[in-house]
Structures are given as C-alpha cells and as structure tokens.
C-alpha cells in the first residue's frame, strides 16, 4: 500500500499542472485578464472613420497597452464613430489635449487606438472626451489618392 501514496501525489501533480496550463491559457494568453483588472475609467473619442477597429481592441500609449475598446457606435447626427475605451486607473494622468489615432500593427496586423499625450495640465477625467482624433488610414483610399496624385502630376 505504500506506493499508492506516491501515486496519489503524482496524480495530484498531474491535475494541478493541467489546471495550471488552463489557467495560463485563460490569464496569460487570452483577454480574460483585461476584464478582471479592477479599476478602470471610461473615455470616449469621436473618429471620422474607425476602420476595422473592434471591441476589445487594444488601447496603447507609447507602445504600451493601457486599456481596451469597450464600445463602437455610429452617431447618426454627426455621422461619426464614437469609440468608448476603458483605461486602466493607474494611468489617470492623460492630458485633455491627448490625440487619439487609429493605427495598424504591421501592414496586416490588428488595428488599435494609440493615445498621444499633449502638453495640457488638465487631466482627462472619468467619461472624458478626447477632442483631437485621427482616423484610421483606409488602405483603398490611400492607394486611390496616390494614384490620383501621380496622374495629376503627369498631366503637368
């Protein structure tokens, strides 16, 4: 009977490591941790075009993740896209003249919101609004403009 004891321990270790693996997937690999984290505040920004941005997309400043998108809605009056973002409460010193831009990670990567802090002394509060925004670059548009421009130049 003495070997059942070690066997129990090994089985225990096995189950524990399996659960650890699943926890690792949940916390480290997926976005679950971003829902769990305690304190955050919401800010909104209006974009002329939010491109392929989606809920849960990353919000970062200087390349560091500080929050995520929690809602994207179309405003039928101004014909703008209203993007709601949840920002970690740790980062509560964003100036109110912060610029929000929609960038793409790499050429084909995910789109994300980049916040570029300005120089104001007033910080964004809960439910604050970002006034200066730069829309997503729509690839088709950019290519179209480029072609149009070069065609115009040739005519000269």
């Amino acid at each position: 009977m003495q070997h059942t004891n070690t066997q129990d321990t090994i089985v225990g270790l096995f189950v524990a490591s399996g659960i650890a693996g699943l926890l690792f997937l949940a916390m480290q690999v997926s976005n679950l941790s971003s829902f769990v984290d305690e304190d955050s505040y919401t800010i909104t920004a209006r974009f002329e075009n939010s491109g392929a941005l989606k809920v849960k997309s990353q919000v970062s400043a200087a390349g560091v993740k500080i929050g995520h998108v929690i809602g994207i809605n179309f405003d039928p009056k101004t014909y703008e896209s209203v993007v709601k973002m949840s920002i970690n409460a740790k980062y509560n010193t964003l100036p109110d003249d912060t610029t929000a831009s929609i960038f793409t990670a790499g050429l084909l990567g995910e789109q994300y919101v980049n916040l570029d802090p300005g120089g104001s002394d007033v910080y964004l509060q809960k439910d604050g609004k970002i006034e200066i925004t730069q829309s997503a670059i729509i690839l088709e548009k950019a290519i179209g403009q480029f072609l149009f421009k070069s065609a115009a130049e040739e005519k000269k």
């Binding site: 997937l25 949940a26 976005n31 990353q58």
Partner: peptide, 21 residues
C-alpha cells in the same frame, strides 16, 4: 512584449479558450 500583448488582444477567453476546452 509584443508577442504576448498581441496575443492577449486577439485571443478571446470565451470564443477561443472555452471553445477549445
């Protein structure tokens, strides 16, 4: 950092992890 943060941004707990389980 990018390896992990891009991963966390795209892998959804419910859609991916739970469905995998």
């Amino acid at each position: 950092g990018i390896y992990w943060s891009q991963m966390q941004a795209s892998i959804d707990f419910h859609d991916d992890i739970i469905n995998g389980i």
